[in-house]
Amino acid sequence: MLIGSILAETATKFPDKLAIICGEDSLTYAELENASNCLANALIREDLAKGHNIAIYSANQTEYPSIFFGSAKSGGVLAHMSARFSSEELISVVNKTEIEALFVHSALADNVLSSRDKLPNLKRVIVFGAGVHAKGGAETLDQFLGDADNSSPQVDIKETDPFGITYTGGTTGFPKGVVVSHEARVIGSIRAAREMEIALTDIMCCSSPFFHIAGLFIWYQTGVMMGLTSVIMPAWDPIEFMDLVEKHKITAAFMVPTQINSVISHEALDQGRLKTLRYVNYGAAPTSLAQLKKQIASLPDVIWQEQYGQSEAGNLTVRSP
């Protein structure tokens, strides 16, 4: 199975179901499938598909999923740049990964454009986001897409082909790229669907960054495989999280320990507002016994399940308290 097939199969089963909600934006699975196909066909047209490295530099945004799946369908390799990269880290990663085209959210575009003279291999900068306009040699996502159609791209892709790069090890020097194949990350979602307590009726919250393996490959991608609606948070805020749970009746979330602590320690915590939240998967950092006890005491009806994994290996194990 290929990464692009995950979305294609779900869009066939649930074309009119909401796939993503992000602020005032929303897309059905059919709309997301069409958007990803347009992106893939534009990459193929511009000779930026199979055999080429491209990148996305963004927090969680509406356009992220279509760029992710579109790149996978094109046969290219998409590098996921941390929105927290310093200028030096960004320059190092773009150059060492030999990135030819970079999709960047408008909030981060100046970081790229101000360093353009230090990025000799970067041919295209494509900016997306509300009210965006081309500047400094960049182009908008709409300009890049042009007349690309939404038909399913015809590309010879093998399950063992690389399709993504995530970065790790930034605490011990410059970030190091981890290249992953379609096969490896599909297996990760199959395992997550089997081993985690995610239900086919869940509405998911995606609050952890898509540029991190847990937020994208293990959590969001598994939700797509299962045909779930994902509520996307561009930035973390405990009050916003509680508002979204109440508004959209969110039932499942992946969170890191600091996010959990900011909710259960908040003076505005109200179990009634979070009454639909039934399952929280957490990881990416250690959780102390004291915090675990506080989690269970604060939200006793929630199923708490911890996971461990690596950027290189994917999800390795899950465990309940």
Results as ranks from 00 to 15, higher is better:
residue 290 A to W: 01
residue 186 V to D: 05
residue 60 N to K: 07
residue 226 M to I: 07
residue 195 E to T: 13
residue 297 A to C: 00
residue 284 A to F: 03
residue 269 L to H: 06
residue 211 F to D: 04
residue 100 E to P: 00
residue 230 S to F: 01
residue 43 L to A: 13
residue 205 C to P: 00
residue 274 L to Q: 04
residue 90 L to G: 04
residue 101 A to R: 01
residue 84 R to I: 08
residue 3 I to T: 15
residue 174 F to M: 15
residue 271 Q to P: 11
residue 306 E to V: 05
residue 139 E to I: 15
residue 25 D to F: 09
residue 119 L to G: 10
residue 279 Y to T: 15
residue 250 I to R: 02
residue 321 P to V: 05
residue 195 E to G: 01
residue 178 V to N: 07
residue 241 F to S: 07
residue 88 E to Y: 09
residue 263 V to W: 00
residue 287 T to V: 15
residue 76 G to E: 07
residue 160 T to C: 08
residue 7 L to Q: 01
residue 180 V to K: 09
residue 170 G to C: 04
residue 282 Y to C: 10
residue 116 R to W: 07
residue 4 G to V: 13
residue 316 L to E: 04
residue 295 Q to Y: 14
residue 217 F to W: 03
residue 258 T to W: 09
residue 43 L to T: 12
residue 252 A to T: 14
residue 130 A to F: 07
residue 254 F to A: 04
residue 124 R to T: 13
residue 72 A to M: 07
residue 158 K to W: 08
residue 272 G to N: 12
residue 308 Y to I: 11
residue 131 G to R: 00
residue 109 A to R: 02
residue 224 V to G: 00
residue 58 S to L: 06
residue 45 R to W: 08
residue 318 V to C: 09
residue 51 G to E: 10
residue 178 V to I: 15
residue 110 D to L: 11
residue 283 G to T: 11
residue 310 Q to F: 10
residue 186 V to W: 08
residue 257 P to M: 11
residue 39 L to S: 12
residue 230 S to K: 01
residue 120 P to N: 03
residue 302 V to G: 08
residue 2 L to M: 13
residue 126 I to R: 03
residue 44 I to Q: 05
residue 13 K to H: 06
residue 67 I to H: 03
residue 13 K to W: 01
residue 31 E to N: 03
residue 21 I to S: 00
residue 5 S to M: 11
residue 316 L to G: 08
residue 243 D to K: 12
residue 41 N to S: 13
residue 309 G to A: 06
residue 12 T to I: 13
residue 281 N to K: 02
residue 65 P to V: 02
residue 196 M to G: 07
residue 286 P to S: 14
residue 218 I to H: 09
residue 20 I to M: 00
residue 296 I to S: 02
residue 126 I to L: 05
residue 245 V to S: 09
residue 2 L to W: 05
residue 168 T to N: 02
residue 320 S to V: 12
residue 137 G to Q: 04
residue 237 D to P: 10
residue 59 A to M: 12
residue 232 I to A: 10
residue 231 V to K: 01
residue 118 K to T: 12
residue 200 L to D: 12
residue 149 D to K: 10
residue 201 T to Q: 05
residue 146 G to Y: 02
residue 261 N to T: 10
residue 135 K to C: 09
residue 300 P to G: 10
residue 123 K to P: 11
residue 177 G to I: 12
residue 174 F to C: 05
residue 130 A to H: 08
